[in-house]
Design a protein around this nucleic acid. Structure first.
Length: 569
DNA sequence: GCCGTTTTCGGCCCGACTGTTTTCAGTCG
């Protein structure tokens, strides 16, 4: 019995209890037990006594033991027998929770979406106590687009929307301060909606301008402090705005950045100090409310260092405070080691990219256009590579301290050979190897290709090591653990590709890379100047895996970097 | 259901919004 199955079973039990209208604290006890298991890195076999974990007691431990010994949970089986299957998906219908669904089932026998629709159309629902005509109408409306809207959207779909809204907020004079919050600010790979915190003393004016300027598909709620809309984008995007006064801004930003578990931990901490955290500030024992100029000041109030949004997840981050200073921030980044120009499939010239890199504040970077195999991307032959080098040299002569290195993003071919000979590679400053073809090969073949790159003395880095697209495709299925072990053995760099389509390596793999002390490079893979902005996203994503600054190659100085790239020459 | 240096009962993070209510329950984040 694996741990994941046990975690899922506990969560299922919680869901069923919720559907029966059970005590919410009992429901959350099962979820907490699941979270406690998930948050512990040990395997089940390594734990001698699960009840030692905080959140697991007699009841949940009995479920776990039974699962380990028999493979089934009698508690869950019984719940499943007593609850109609059709009710489960209805939990996702906005506005309906366990209590209401329990009532609909108990009093009207509603056990499916179809039955619910029929009951609403017959006007039976509005006759129930606690329900009314509006509820019935809302249920019908939600049933109409039930299942048609994506539950969570990938970060690359949300990022441009966030940029657009940020620009709009900056143009509204009544907005004193504003920031995105929620899971997007924590750089989660997918989000259910986008949250914004807006400081203003004129909420009505801000509300009017937002509603007038945004492509609103639907207004879900529009109160004095909260506006909730669905925007008309490729996929409908839910956006929440919280309007607060400037003195409550830092507290609200913290509160709505979450995560939920992080907030719970913070509130418990406050409570132990006889204080109370709300989104408006921190209430003291005497009833007065302290507010803060910044999130830094908020954390300092509890004698904590600033905890970056990206690590505010399980609550365990409060146990890892001493590691926070080892995390990288955007200001630590000296270089971007992977990008394209008009020589292959990029939108800007070498000189234009160079200027933009200097404007980013970098002290060096590498131009890495595609290699000859990738014809669709106008990949470079050895001859064109030489011509490009002349252009790069000219740029360097004209630009003093900043150094642009000549590199390549070389394809690893389907047959396991590399796209350039060693004679070509050794002339280059920096060699990236990557896979862009034959994704569906069996794992052994993919690994043989990667091994060819790993063992070549002139290759420095493997780019986007799994080829995944966030929320779209899993990639080419390498044995990532082995790949990371090779990177350690052959002293190669693995990329954290910062493009929101990729975020590759993913957090779980970065964590293993950290265990082994493998070097990581955070690169934008920019095909145009405006994509250089993804560096910030990549750096913050690295924080989620607690990647150490010293292992991030592009935080190194130019001299350190040169020492590494010349090591085999 | 879980937890405990206010410890075996009584609380469990907190507040906004909505719709249903004449003071609150349910849902959501």
């Amino acid at each position: 019995m694996n741990k994941k199955t046990i975690i899922r079973t506990l969560e299922k039990i919680a869901l069923y209890l919720e559907l029966r209208g059970e005590n919410p604290f009992k429901v959350s006890a099962f979820r907490k037990a699941a979270a406690a298991l998930e948050g512990d890195e040990r395997s089940l076999a390594e734990m001698d006594d699960v009840t030692k974990l905080k959140g697991i007691g007699k009841g949940t431990a009995a479920v776990i033991t039974e699962l380990v010994e028999t493979g089934v949970s009698s508690v869950l089986v019984e719940l499943e027998e007593q609850t109609p299957k059709g009710l489960i998906p209805l939990m996702k219908l906005p506005g309906l929770g366990g209590k209401k669904l329990a009532k609909l089932y108990n009093e009207l026998g509603i056990d499916s979406a179809e039955a619910l629709q029929a009951a609403c159309e017959e006007g039976k629902v509005q006759q129930l106590a606690g329900f009314g005509a509006k509820t019935e109408e809302k249920i019908l409306k939600e049933l109409a687009n039930f299942g048609t809207r994506a539950e969570r959207l990938p970060i690359w779909q949300l990022e441009p929307v966030v940029l657009e809204i940020e620009t709009l907020l900056q143009s509204i004079v009544e907005v004193e301060s504003a920031s995105v919050a929620g899971s997007f600010r924590r750089v989660k790979e997918t989000s259910k909606d986008i949250d914004f915190i807006v400081a203003t003393s004129a909420p009505q004016a801000v509300r009017e301008q937002l509603l007038a300027s945004l492509p609103v598909l639907e207004i879900v709620a529009a109160g004095d402090t909260k506006i909730s809309v669905v925007l008309d984008k490729e996929e409908p995007v839910s956006v929440d705005f919280r309007l607060v006064t400037l003195d409550a801004y830092a507290s609200a930003l913290h509160h709505f950045t979450g995560s939920k578990d992080h907030n719970v931990r913070m509130r418990q901490l406050a409570k132990s100090m006889n204080q109370k955290i709300s989104e408006y500030g921190v209430e003291q024992e005497d009833g007065s409310v302290v507010t803060f100029d910044s999130e830094e000041a908020f954390f300092a109030h509890f004698n904590l260092p600033f905890i970056p949004p990206t690590v505010r997840e399980s609550g365990n981050e409060l146990e890892r405070l001493e590691e926070l200073s080892q995390l990288a921030s955007r200001a630590d980044i000296q270089a971007d080691l992977h990008m394209h120009t008009t020589w292959s499939d990029g939108a800007h010239s070498v000189a234009e990219m160079g200027e933009a890199l200097i404007a980013q504040g970098y002290s060096y970077s590498v131009i890495t256009d595609h290699s000859q195999y990738l014809k669709v991307a106008n990949g470079l032959t050895p001859a064109r590579l030489q011509k490009q080098r002349v252009e790069i040299d000219a740029f360097n002569e004209a630009n003093g301290q900043f150094r642009l290195y000549a590199g390549t993003e070389m394809d690893i071919l389907p047959d396991g050979s590399l796209d350039f000979s060693d004679d070509v590679l050794k002339e280059l400053d920096f060699v990236i190897a990557s896979i862009h073809s034959s994704f569906s090969q069996p794992q052994e073949q993919i690994m043989a290709r990667l091994e060819a790159a790993m063992t070549n003395p002139y290759v420095h880095m493997i780019a986007h090591p799994t080829g995944r697209i966030v929320g779209e495709r899993p990639g080419y299925d390498p044995d990532v653990k082995t790949l990371i072990e090779w990177a350690k053995a052959y002293d190669k760099i693995l990329e954290l590709n910062a493009n929101p389509y990729r975020l590759d390596l993913a957090v779980e793999h970065l964590q293993y890379a950290m265990e082994l002390g493998v070097k990581i490079a955070i690169n934008t893979d920019a095909h145009a100047i405006d994509q250089l902005r993804f560096m910030d996203l990549g750096v913050r994503y690295s924080q989620k895996a607690w990647v150490k600054k010293e292992l991030i190659v592009n935080t190194w100085t130019k001299e350190q970097f040169e020492a590494y790239i010349r090591r085999n020459k």
